[in-house]
Structures are given as C-alpha cells and as structure tokens.
C-alpha cells in the first residue's frame, strides 16, 4: 500500500480541521439578483455559438442561472450514488485502513448536497433529472469497487476545475461563488484520496484480471468520461432558458468544435493521470 495509510491519516486530520456546520456555512440571500451571473459565461455549454451570441445580456444571465442549477443537480446525482457506494465500502473486509476517512468523505458529500440542493430548491424550486442509468451485471473480483472509485474520480476532477474557476470569478453572485469555493476546499482532499486509491486498486487487480476484463474496463471508463460531459449539455436547461429547439441545440452544442476543445482542456489533467497510470492506453474521444 506504500504511503497510502499516511496519506489517509493526514486527510483525516485536515477534514477534522475543516469540519463545517452546513446550516451556518452559507449566507443564503432571500432572493437572487436577476442582474447577476451564476456561472462564468465562458463555461456555459453554448458559449461561443451563434445561438449564444444572439442572446441579450439578460437572457445570457438567465441561461447562466439554469446552467448552474444543472451543474449543481449533476453534483447532487453524483453525490447521491457516491454516498450509497461509500456507505457500502465502509468497514468492508480489506477497507479497515480507509474506513476512518470514508466517514469524512460521507459527511462532506452529504454537506455538499445540502449546499447544492439548497440553491436548487430555494431559487429554482427543483433539481434537474438525471438520465444516467446503470444496468446490473456480473463483475470480476475487485472490478466493481475499482470502477466505483474511478468514476467518482473522473466526475470530481471535472467538477473541481469548474469550482476553481467560478470560486474566483468576481462577476458571479456571492452565493454561487461561495458554494463553488466550499466545494473545492473539500474536493481537494477527495481528489488526493481518489488519485491514490484508484491507482493502487488498478495495480492490485489489473494484474489478476483476464485481458478481456482490463480491455472492457478501459472501454467503459473512456465512455464514462464522455458521458459525464454530455450531461453538461441539458435540453431541460435550454427549455427553461427559453431557447428554441432544445434537443437539436443539445446535439449541436455537444458537437461544436469549440465545446470539444473546452472539454479536452478541462479534462486534460484527469486524462493524463489515467494514461500515466496505464489505466487508459489511449486518449478517449470527448
């Protein structure tokens, strides 16, 4: 396991120091300023497209509100299954050393849902639905656990770059910046944990998996990165923002070369990690 137990110990210490009360951590305004930005314009899913350029300033801001609700909703869905999976891992055989940190992980993800859910329900009155589905199937030994943590890592890597950018963006409404910042502060630790654990699990199991399992794991993860991105382009958002032909727009936005370059840039560090650790052998198509 190498340095991992030491890292886990340090992360636990840091989590205790950062321990937050989710009911006093945020300053929720009574209502949002309709003149405000909630997501950085450059991160909006249709940024740079003619459909975006045509919008008035007010319409762009309205879109930024619904894109934020989508971004926060994605986080809630990711965190819901994360919490489920973490709870399952807790005190499982072989996880003794991880369990103290899993308690923090669970605690922090629950708090994130309070922040994200607080924003969505207070100001939008809803959370967007999740179109991702997982079908039950059989797994090789260790495969399910490995895929679980690898998927969490991919998801958190992408989210974190958005969080960092938006926590620094002075154009955004204070509450949006605050939520992004406090999420990032916890996610820094989750990423350290994930990067160490995923690498270690892959080394441990890939050596004993038959080649077809390794190949399937690689194929799945490559597809997962792309599927994760796809949810950033949500026709429900376009509908709420009053944009025309939301489904076509979703297809065009995802296929837009600028958007593809954006996804590549944001996922760069994450993909490099997967390549360097031989978990992926080639760059996935985004």
């Amino acid at each position: 396991m190498g340095d991992f137990p030491r890292i886990v110990e340090k992360l636990c210490e840091a989590s205790k120091k950062e321990y937050a009360n989710p009911y006093s951590a945020m300053e929720w305004p009574e209502a949002l300023d309709p003149e405000g930005w909630f997501m950085s314009p450059e991160l909006l899913s249709i940024y740079g497209m003619p459909e975006y350029d045509r919008l008035t300033e007010g319409e762009k801001k309205k879109l930024s509100f619904y894109e934020t609700v989508n971004f926060f909703s994605l986080n809630i869905h990711g965190e819901k299954s994360l919490v489920e999976g973490l709870a399952r891992q807790l005190y499982q055989k072989g996880n003794q050393e991880l369990s103290p940190y899993l308690h923090h992980f669970l605690d922090e993800e629950n708090k994130h849902m309070i922040y994200f859910g607080g924003f969505c329900t207070r100001y939008a009155g809803k959370i967007y639905r999740d179109r991702k589905m997982v079908f039950p199937r059989d797994y090789a030994p260790g495969e399910e656990g490995f895929l679980f943590f690898a998927k969490v890592l991919i998801f958190e890597e992408i989210v974190d770059l958005y969080n960092v950018k938006m926590s620094k963006d002075a154009r955004l409404a204070p509450i949006a910046r605050q939520i992004n910042l406090s999420h990032h502060r916890d996610e820094m630790r989750h990423l350290v944990f994930g990067r160490n654990l995923v690498k270690e699990l892959f080394q441990r199991y890939a050596a004993v998996w038959p080649p077809e399992v390794v190949q399937e794991v690689r194929r799945y993860l490559a597809g997962y990165i792309s599927a994760t991105w796809k949810e950033y382009y949500n026709p429900d958002v376009y509908k709420d923002a009053g944009l025309e032909d939301p489904y076509r727009l979703q297809e065009r936005a995802f296929a837009n070369p600028r958007a593809q370059a954006h996804r590549k840039k944001i996922s760069e560090g994450c993909i490099r990690y997967f390549l360097e650790n031989n978990i992926l052998e080639e760059e996935p198509v985004l």
């Binding site: 999740d130 991702k132 599927a227």
Partner: peptide, 27 residues
C-alpha cells in the same frame, strides 16, 4: 451500452415530444 442509454433517452424524448420520467425506469 448502459452509457448510451442516456442518448437513447434524449432520442425518445425527441420522438415522443414528452419528458421521460427517469425515476420510474427499469432495465
């Protein structure tokens, strides 16, 4: 693949002109 089901749902929504109630879905 299970990951492509997401695209299938979008396609079904386009075709039906309605929203899919994802919480009810069964494999």
């Amino acid at each position: 693949s299970s990951l492509q089901v997401m695209d299938l749902l979008l396609f079904l929504e386009q075709l039906t002109g309605k929203s899919v109630d994802v919480e009810k879905l069964k494999p």
